[in-house]
Amino acid sequence: MNALNITDGGGSSSGLSLSVALGSHIDAGGKCFVPYLTGGLPGWQTGVAAAAEAGAQAVEIGIPFSDPVMDGPVIQASSQMALDGGATPVSILDEARSIDVGIPLAVMTYANLVYRFGYERFAHALVSSGISGAILPDIPLEEVGPWADAADGAGVETVMLAAPTADDDRLTRVVERARGFVYTVGLLGITGERESLAATAKVIARRVKALTDKPVLVGVGVSTPAQAVEVCEVADGVVVGSAIVRRIIETGSQEAGGELVAEFVTALARG
């Protein structure tokens, strides 16, 4: 795809910030759309470019892990496909260097890949690949210290998850620690598509919004443009993974993911 502007590998997206990009879009009255794409699938960088061109405010890039406990069947399958194709954290970060799409990127991966890489080394690798943020769903507040120190030091935004099971005291501490945006878990469960928006989604979004001015995006269980619009009556935006990844896998086309992103973006703009 032509939007992919190959540079000679210098972290061309660096300098972008999730909080700034999302925050300015919200300030302008918009709702944010952040798709999740599994890194390491064939041509995955094309998918990132397509998502950007379709109007996403940021893109979440999954670095596949062998044991993704927070993920449902679609992301598990796409992760396994990428791993079978030989994807590694190193190859994905290397390939990410060539992405120049003008919106911030974040990685979503699991603790062990980062721990094995080394926290500081990983944080610096993100920066040199032009990646602004990191989402690590199995590193909660209690364990985030060493990683957060490394990430803060390198200028990487650590997105924290806020879940419906937390009391307000805990939510306060979560949003305090969050950088970039607050990833608000819309339901009790793992990633995957649901027929309707869970009743918990707007409730938790409202609770989190009451505690912070940081961008509040709802993810997990947001599957359709209508559901996105519904939850954005409260939230500042959504993260959508399984629906888009399924579309890419079923069609075998990264561009098809971009088309679905466009549907979400259009729906959210209409409100």
Binding site: M70, D138, I139, P140, L141, E142, L161, A163, A166, R170
Partner: peptide, 20 residues
């Protein structure tokens, strides 16, 4: 600390499970 045996152990779980 938080479930540490020397350097090992801990609480590396999704946020949803921490309160439980």
């Amino acid at each position: 600390g938080i479930g540490r045996f020397g350097d090992f152990g801990g609480l590396f779980v999704p946020e949803t499970l921490v309160p439980a």
